[in-house]
Amino acid sequence: MSAGRGTKALGAYALERLVNAVPLVLGVIVVNFLLISLAPGDPVTALIGEFPAPPEYVERVRAQYGLDQSVPERLVRYLGSVVRGDLGFSFANRQPVLDLVVQRLGRTMLLMLTTVVLATFVGVVLGVWAARRPNSAVDGGATGFALAGYSIPEFWLGQILILVFAVWLGWLPAGGFRSIRAEYVGLDAVWDQARHMILPVLALSFRYMAITTRLTRASLLEVMNADYILAARARGLSERRVLWEHGLRAAALPIITVIGYNFSFIVAGSALVETVFGWPGVGRLMYDSIFTRDYPVLLGILLLVSITVILVNLVTDIAYALADPRVRY
């Protein structure tokens, strides 16, 4: 890629990547559209209730939703509207898809960002702790935790958390976004919200905590023997300072990378966790839309998630570049 450094080059690089993303997004739309349109089953059936409908009524509904046109015609029309920033109109919800998704997006982001922050924090602390005494009991424990976290399905973990903390112990709510009965305000509202978030965030973050722990540990072990670390030690810096200041700085790169590149898996995980906990986010909307055959909503969510993944990857690359001066973009 382009040689040179500095914000200017970085900007150009970002721009280039964005331009390159355009055909990619186009591909995403076409693939998803064809896949969904060619699926067996008629969305008009889902739009009509369970009753013997006269054919002229069926045709009227079909025309109303533009489903009387051929697939290529519909694809062209869809592409045209997407370019104008219009993701279409939901069959079932009779609302613009974008409005529908945006309403839910905040709640999904709340879940995901809390997860990323928690997973990163705990993962880094555990990883550093393990790396300080490789092969000690602490290390073994952290590594074991990491492998377990990587193997336990989040939806099952969610079920078990509900069983233990909501059903058996009764400490935390079994699901939902917040209490409905009491209208909390101020700090109480924050606490109420937090109580509802604990279990879903735990279920969702376990896997990423595990990944971050593993990565932090491995990256630290790798750099701790590098020359500049040895030099720092030689200068008489305390082991703690060496670890946190020099080691972690170097280890930051793979950590950023893993969070960035795992983003689409966090999205998938949140769809599962939202379903288990009845969290009213985008994942839940997607799940509902499958059963109402709400094609525009499904396409819209797939598209938005794909764009988000592209952007997060781009931000990850830029963050990587900023964190590591050796990287040339």
Binding site: V167, P173, G175, G176, I180, R181, V276, F277, P280
Partner: peptide
Amino acid sequence: LIYRVVPQDAARSVALEVGEA
């Protein structure tokens, strides 16, 4: 009158038991 959406089967009876529905 509040209509509350509880998508998960098991969570509906829990909501009733804890007075959230």
